[in-house]
Computed example of a mutant assay.
Amino acid sequence: MISQLTAEQRHRWREFRAFADGVIAPAADTIDARQEIPRPLIRELGEAGWLSAMLPERWGGRGLDAAHYGMMAEELGRTCSNVRNFVAVQDMVSHAVSMWGIPEQKLRWLPEIAAGRRIAAFLLTEPDTGSDAQDVRTEAKDDGSEIVVSGAKKWISFGQCADLFLVFVQYQGRHTAILVERDSPGVHVTPLTDMLGLRGSMLAEITFEECRVPADSVIGHPGSGLAFVAANSLDIGRYSTAWGCVGLAQACLDASSAYAAERRQYGKPLADHQLVQQMLADMLTQSRAARLLCWQAGQAADREDEDSHYEALTAKYFSSTVAARIAGQAVQIHGARGMGAGAAVGRFFRDAKAMEIIEGASQVIQQLLGRWSAVAGHPSALGPSG
């Protein structure tokens, strides 16, 4: 596939890969073991332009299109899913602020997030509200020149360390997005540790006890929280996750191919056993198919196709299921070594399972795609050629 890239895309890809291999990969196991991403690495991400990369340069971004952003996300996913998740969350929040924020919010937060000086978190999920985002129960009420927020959010990536929360609430009876700073009175952060996968994503439960924020903390306008702010941000998260899963699958394939070539059983390398060859062939085919779906989703986004939302959903659904399947095969090929402490494929296996849950569980996405494909006369239901 590299031969099909333009000269600029090949240059960008080499840049992304060199940084991922040189800076991110050496830290991946430590991030997983210590369950945190170190601040110096976050600052390096900012200095290298990996944060808010799709934003214009005036806000600290690099103006990447969806295709280049996908290449970056694949290299992040290939080396460390926690870092890929971190970058995605920052991009989701910065995108929301850039699209729907007032000038003062943009000036204050966008350059800080892009530089890695401030960390943001996306607060949608609640203890009793997951995929059904319309059922948000955190409330916000007017009180003079302030808004009072009460409720709780759970399973929030980087909630442990975030300086800024993009919180989705019911405000004036409508689904609304509000910015809340971590040091606001009434904000309580409870770390959630020892997760199965994405252990370095520093999850937390965030509780708001009559937390007071300025009235101009709303992003967009009352009622735009789900249909506009969340929906557009989630598309970025799903697109990033899809590409990250391709990278994770590629890492599993690379590790498994190398191990199968060196490990000998019954007098010959594992790679010469037909059943192992079949597994490697399936891993290769499925990872390439996932990558092509991601490319298609990126092209749809860059063309601003009306169905780009569903292209991202399709890529996320397929890539995450493929990553989980390939990671399981990678552990199987490695045998006991794949189950040992510090085994990279063991980390891939745990992280891959999380990919089938975050940014929309597979079953929820299946339901959405099923409805989409069943629309009578829908051109995309007939395939790319219509």
Rank of each mutant, 00 (worst) to 15 (best):
G225A: 09
G200C: 06
Q332L: 10
G46F: 00
W50L: 15
S320D: 06
Q170R: 13
R350P: 06
D351K: 05
F348C: 08
L293V: 13
G197L: 08
W243L: 04
T129M: 12
A289F: 10
A327Q: 06
R78H: 12
A327N: 06
S145K: 13
R371P: 02
P127W: 14
F318C: 07
E356K: 04
P40H: 10
R62P: 03
L253V: 08
W372E: 09
L76D: 03
G151A: 05
C211G: 03
L368F: 09
G77I: 10
E209I: 13
E57L: 07
L382Q: 15
P191W: 06
I31Q: 05
R288H: 13
K153D: 02
A361N: 08
F165P: 00
R174S: 10
P185D: 07
S240M: 04
N82Q: 10
A133F: 15
F122G: 00
L270P: 01
I357N: 05
L203M: 14
V187D: 07
Y259R: 14
A18P: 03
Y266A: 15
K106P: 01
F158D: 00
N232H: 10
C294S: 06
D91M: 12
D29A: 15
G223C: 05
V322S: 02
G144E: 08
L234V: 08
G116W: 00
Q90C: 03
E356S: 05
E356N: 11
S240P: 06
G200I: 01
H95M: 11
H378L: 14
T193F: 11
D163G: 11
P222Q: 07
E8W: 11
A115H: 06
Q160V: 04
A66K: 06
G247D: 06
G46R: 03
S308V: 12
L293R: 13
S224L: 06
G220K: 00
H95T: 07
Q90E: 14
D282E: 11
A7W: 06
G346L: 05
G101T: 04
W13A: 12
V93G: 01
Q4A: 11
T138G: 07
M195W: 12
A33L: 09
G383K: 07
L124V: 11
I219G: 00
I156Y: 04
S201K: 08
G159C: 03
R34Q: 13
F228W: 13
S373H: 15
E209Q: 15
L123E: 02
A27Q: 08
E306I: 09
A227I: 15
G342P: 02
D128A: 10
S287H: 07
D132E: 14
R117P: 02
I358G: 02
S287I: 06
E112Y: 04
A88M: 12
L124R: 11
D194C: 14
G61E: 00
T314K: 05
H11N: 14
W13F: 15
T241N: 15
K268W: 10
S94G: 04
D272Y: 13
L64D: 07
G61C: 04
F122Q: 02
I236W: 04
G77D: 03
W109D: 01
V331F: 02
G298R: 03
A330G: 11
G77F: 00
Q296R: 15
